[in-house]
Amino acid sequence: MKKVMSLAMAAVIALAGFGLTSCGQADPVDVSVMALKGPTAMGMVKFMDDVDAGDVTDNNYEFSIAASADEVTPALTKGEVDIAALPANMASILYNNTDGNVQVLAVNTLGVLYICETGDTVNSVADLKGKTIYASGKGATPEYSLNYILEKNGLEIGKDVQVEWKSEHSECVAALANDENGIALLPQPFVTTAQTKNPNIRVALDLTEEWDKLQEGEEAQGTMITGVIVANKEFVENNPDAVEAFLSHYEESVNYVNENTDAAAELVGNYDIVPAQVAKEALPECNIVYIAGSEMKDKLSGYLSVLMEQNPKAIGGQLPEDDFYYGQ
């Protein structure tokens, strides 16, 4: 009996030497995670709350919320952050600018762009003919997405539709209030924020739906994608178990957020992403998802291909190789 016990103890010691417990679990890994204020962070709130409550202890997770992508990208490329939620096109730009040292783990937010007005004149893309659209995001995804949808519907910017670019979403809302015939391109949750201040603002078109209509006949169908979860590739290669654990918790969090709007909205407010009341109204319209594997690759590669056609600079000059997509 002593000999059996000694062998068992020796096995535990040997496993410990490899950083494993007798159950085959890896030792906890430090995982630094950063997300942007808005939809890309909303799907993560249950995961964050479980960590803070001590309910998730498999790894040492540290979360932070940034106000802009300019805070996230340098931290990720320098290895100060392991995993981050970023705009989809920014992930491609980082991949191209770091010789492939960024890998996308999952799609976490589909399109959040909406055409809004205070009247009732727009019910299809065709109705935008002769209109002026107030928008922000020139040189970024909002511009390329709007251009794609207008052009594929036979509308020429500058001729059929005028686009007046503003520096901030709030300027678009102000322009909308001052022009009874005005139309604005706004993202969630800003749409909901604007509606709380001006109940006359209505959502006329969901650009994600309009994008999907245009993709129906395409051989490789993509969809409008706002945000993705990315990771430092070196971290992924060195910590495969930690990455899988993170994705499992994240998927559970996304499902919780989508199925428990009121409770999730409180968490969104607690983490100062947007006020809880705004989150309660906005969450169902934020298109928060968890899409991984081959479906992620199909949808994201299709989306990036459209941006590539619009402006190669939007994705860093060229489409990413297959190693950009985790698990592919």
Rank of each mutant, 00 (worst) to 15 (best):
M1Y: 13
L7Q: 10
A16E: 15
F18L: 15
T21N: 13
A35C: 09
A35V: 09
L36R: 02
K37L: 05
A41T: 06
M42A: 06
D58N: 09
D58H: 00
F63T: 02
F63A: 02
E71D: 12
T73Y: 08
G79T: 08
L94I: 10
N97K: 15
T98K: 03
D99V: 11
V102H: 05
Q103S: 13
V107A: 06
L113G: 06
G119N: 12
D120F: 04
T121C: 12
T121Y: 10
V125K: 05
V125Q: 02
K129L: 10
K131H: 01
Y134G: 07
S136V: 05
N147G: 03
K166M: 14
K166H: 14
S167W: 13
E168H: 13
E171Y: 12
E171Q: 14
A175V: 10
G182V: 04
A184L: 06
L186R: 02
D206K: 00
Q215R: 09
T223A: 09
G227H: 03
D241G: 08
A242T: 07
V243C: 05
E259R: 09
A264F: 00
A265V: 01
A279L: 04
A282F: 01
L283G: 03
I288S: 00
A292N: 11
A292I: 11
K297R: 14
D298F: 09
Y303D: 04
Q310T: 05
Q310N: 08
N311H: 02
A314T: 03
G327Y: 06
G327Q: 04
